[in-house]
Design a protein around this nucleic acid. Structure first.
Lengths: 344, 344
DNA sequence: TGTTAGCACTCAGGTTGTTCGAGTGCTAAA
DNA sequence: TTTAGCACTCGAACAACCTGAGTGCTAACA
């Protein structure tokens, strides 16, 4: 186990490194207020800390730099709690300044403000459409072959897609079907729609509609709702200002990951456990993210978890500040949404 | 005026520089097949070309590099026409491989393929929603205060927004109004909707609907259609692979512009004259784009111009190839869309 | 008169050597 | 156990030097 003094030194090293981005030497440390012993003592302790894997040297006679293990320990045990400034609070409140009517807009704005506050990149995983409840289905013919299918949910979200209509289906049948669907399916979560149709509505349809079979295809096309939550980015270019990304190679590999979205989405889903999650450097298991840390928090309505907000920054990230901010935004977001859902 | 020999030299210099990205010296030039005279002669000619402002030196004893004026002349007079390879043609055709049902998807795919083909960044300005014609309006109440307003256009595009409903408006009035709007406004371009309402539909509404005045707000909220075309990017990170962007500063300022979208949109609109438009370096009048050129082409249905496709690359760009590709894609896109509009 | 060979000159970029400062580890004394 | 002192290491910054690619100019040539 680490001694108290070692912990102190580890903490001060990481704090300093996060602040200035330069390897920290024993002399610098000895000048810190909290540190009452000499640089030689510090050197001895640092040698031990290095042997244990918490800090590293960039070259043989350099100051020390936190290792991933060091950051991990720091995040788990050494974080000094932060208070938000007035200014920070003001910005966070500004997310909710206007009355919200659309979830997506709110979520997008949150991402924007988060990246503003932190100067890192922020990512928000939006509420999953698949959990919204059906409010209304509408099919509007465009011409002989095609129509627009529209599904409105209880949250005001609108899903729409262009579908093909089999030649054998006529307009009145279509209308009848839409009516039946609207009668039977209100309040059903979108993800369950397809299931429900086959189990409960099929019989009714068969008796009322002549062309039931050829209509099946149309129905299932219509109800093909995207499974995945939308991902909103803000401040993608913020990372370019971080000194660790002065190397164009690193920038490229990171940007490629962000641009691809798919792998990144999966990574975010993995982290979507409740509360604050921190993954550091290679813990992310995505090449190109070796120098990055990801901090995620979840927001919810009542007990139901709705989505994830996250900050992507360099491993040398202001963990404490970011965690405080994320916590705050996530909880404010949850409160606002719970309110909103109750009133609608 | 430039002599034929000077033109030849200018052309070969630019061709070579575009290919290899290195300043071109007289010795290198003298070895080219097309060039039959000695390096000393070339040096004399280059001195003249430099004096006239077509080429520049990077330092006192370096080879020559095209100036913006040089590129401008090259693009206007010296482009050697290119033929597309089989592979290029195949990729372009793949845009139209699947039957298209939604304009936006097609346009997005075009952007993707364009950036693939060129390794530059591509931007597509989508068809303006405001020119689409009204097919159906729908207002679906969510709760006492709010409703979703949906406008479907003849192209299958769906616009939707959440609106507030004044307490004084009741459901049946709302329904009545929607019916009247649907009767009177089918086929009207979205941009004209608001106008039309006040001029032609207002009277009908006033006589049929009790709560006309308080409903005005609802109507105008509903019909507030975005004026601007959507902008689709593809290959944003491609620029990172260009050697001229090995400097992180340049990358940052360029990315910031791309990220902002607003200025960029305006720039693209300025270039939306018919045919191929090339703006080189500072001609773009956007700081951060000094090292970039923008090539745009427009696509249309029949005579009506619908949107713009563009390639953003370094000034040292393969103008000839890009122009050929853009021309091709724009014309194929126009043909496909004209077809599509006729059949619907 | 236009073209070319030759030559002196310039400069970027790579290599090498040097110095400086920040840092280390080790040892011996407190 | 802590600390002062010292020898040592290394990176970064800098100057000196060399090389190669390139230029401009001049004088001779066709």
């Amino acid at each position: 186990m680490l001694t108290d003094r070692q912990l102190l030194i580890l903490q001060v090293i990481i704090d300093d490194f996060i602040r200035y981005g330069q390897p920290v030497g024993s002399r610098t440390l000895s000048k810190k207020e909290k540190i009452t012993f000499s640089s030689a003592t510090i050197r001895n302790e640092m040698a031990d800390l290095e042997e244990l894997g918490y800090i590293e040297k960039t070259h043989i006679s350099s100051g020390r730099v936190p290792s991933e293990k060091g950051y991990r320990y720091y995040v788990d045990h050494l974080l000094s709690p932060q208070r938000l400034t007035q200014e920070d609070m003001r910005k966070i409140k500004s997310i909710f300044a206007e009355r919200i009517y659309e979830l997506e807009k709110l979520v997008q704005k949150s991402a924007q403000i988060l990246s503003d506050l932190t100067s890192y990149t922020s990512i928000v995983l939006g509420p999953a459409v698949k959990d919204n409840k059906m409010k209304r289905i509408q099919i509007i013919p465009l011409n002989k072959e095609t129509a627009v299918a529209i599904i409105v949910t209880d949250t005001g979200h609108v899903e729409n897609r262009v579908i093909t209509i089999p030649a054998s289906v006529n307009a009145s049948d279509l209308e009848k079907m839409v009516n039946i669907l609207n009668e039977r399916l209100i309040g059903v979560p979108l993800i369950e729609l397809k299931d429900k149709i086959y189990k409960e509505v099929a019989d009714v349809l068969r008796t009322h509609i002549y062309n039931y079979d050829s209509m099946l295809k149309t129905i299932s096309e219509t109800l093909d709702v995207p499974q995945e939550e939308k991902m909103f980015f803000a401040g993608k270019t913020n990372m370019l200002s971080q000194p660790e990304f002065s190397d164009i190679q690193k920038v490229r590999s990171l940007m490629t990951i962000i641009e691809q979205e798919k792998d990144f989405y999966r990574l975010l889903r993995k982290n979507s456990k409740k509360g604050i999650q921190v993954t550091i450097g290679r813990e992310n298991q995505l090449s190109g993210m070796e120098n990055c840390s990801l901090i995620t928090a979840t927001y919810s309505v009542g007990e139901e978890q709705l989505g994830t907000i996250a900050i992507l920054g360099p491993t040398r990230m202001e963990y404490s500040r970011v965690i405080t901010i994320l916590n705050r935004v996530a909880s404010d977001l949850s409160t606002a949404l719970t309110d909103w859902y109750q009133n609608s």
